[in-house]
Design a binder for these strands. Structure first.
Lengths: 204, 204
DNA sequence: GTCTATACGACGATAGAC
DNA sequence: GTCTATCGTCGTATAGAC
């Protein structure tokens, strides 16, 4: 029933699911144990640092390998609208149309045991956010935005997605999430009517 | 030192602060006790339903009285840009420039003890979100948007704020929050250059 | 490398004195 | 209406058999 030996990647995948829906404090070792099929003590064998280490590794994995996969379509000099749309489809799948929360949200609440992690989790979250911002800002830059404007567009596009995930969790309505994804190309690249859009400077 | 008798409103104010930063599960009775200056058992005297009741009352209070106060400037037939800007200032104060999280976010994570609340908290959160959406949609409608478009604009504006709060928590940067607030008038009312803006229908 | 068993503290919640 | 004292449970974490 339980695969006796689960390799590290598969293990992290299972743990990720729990942390995404429950957050750090909400994810108990019992939850993590039943999700992986491993007893609590076995989890400590794999992760001597306990829950904090599990959380940190989960966030790092999603922020590195996970984001590499999602943003692969952007990996060339001049990303197109189609490339951004492909990223949108990846994100829609990753968030299950908005039904699954984001680690940046659920893992970033303050916690007592938080200090015990030595800020490792918080650092991993911040690094993940920065990578995401830079990936999106790169698209905006390629489309002709100034560095500052590119970063602003990237942050706003990410905020639209994160906020839509919150709304979905509260109202059950995923329409805002779908719109945030659909808006992604114009949000990052500006009005894509003209090929080399010269941006309408939104002063302020 | 501890005011012996704290009235219900003041009590809820203190509790609100804890739930906002810690979420439901993260807010322990010890936290709530020290924030209010009341012993755990005294809290149970005031709230026989325990933590679940405290949470539900906190959410309802913020969603009713709190939102009434914040959205007061919109309480007439034809809200102006200045009115929306006033709401923006209220929200900036309420969220302390983005440094304090939103109950819609922190209280909406799934939880084991969640079922014990009988869905009371979840219902209060959903009701609060609906009230917020309707308040913003009213502005968009007054500005000439169709009902569907008004609701979409309202949701997107709220998502921008909620997402910016998440970003701020992770990166420490409040710029996205400031932009979300600054964008509020145009996000809801459209391009306000022409007095009776006839919206650019964003099909979809 | 997984398991059973257990330590020990913090949790939410209650009883009863004042 | 507040307090002290306590209950039972579940939390994280560890020890040691297999």
């Amino acid at each position: 029933m339980t695969p006796r030996t689960l390799d590290h990647e598969a293990l992290l995948d299972r743990l990720t699911g729990v942390f995404r829906s429950a957050g750090y404090e909400g994810a108990s070792l019992s939850d993590l144990s039943s999700a992986t099929g491993l007893q609590r003590s076995s989890l400590y064998h794999r992760f001597p640092g306990g829950k904090a280490q599990m959380a940190a590794e989960v966030v790092r994995r999603v922020g590195n390998a996970g984001m590499d996969a999602a943003f692969a379509p952007l990996d060339h000099a001049q990303p197109t609208v189609a490339d951004v749309e492909a990223v949108g489809r990846s994100l829609t799948a990753f968030y299950a149309d908005g039904a699954i929360s984001c680690l940046l949200d659920t893992m970033s609440l303050r916690d007592h045991s938080w200090a015990a992690t030595g800020g490792e989790v918080a650092d991993a979250l911040a690094a993940t956010a920065q990578r995401w911002i830079e990936a999106f800002a790169g698209v905006a830059s390629s489309a002709g935005a100034t560095p500052g404007e590119a970063r602003a567009r990237a942050e706003d596009a990410i905020a639209a997605i994160e906020g839509a995930l919150v709304l979905r969790r509260v109202t059950g309505d995923g329409a805002a999430f779908a719109r945030a994804i659909a808006r992604l190309p114009t949000a990052l690249m500006g009005d894509t009517k003209s090929t080399k859009s010269t941006k309408r400077t939104t002063r302020g």
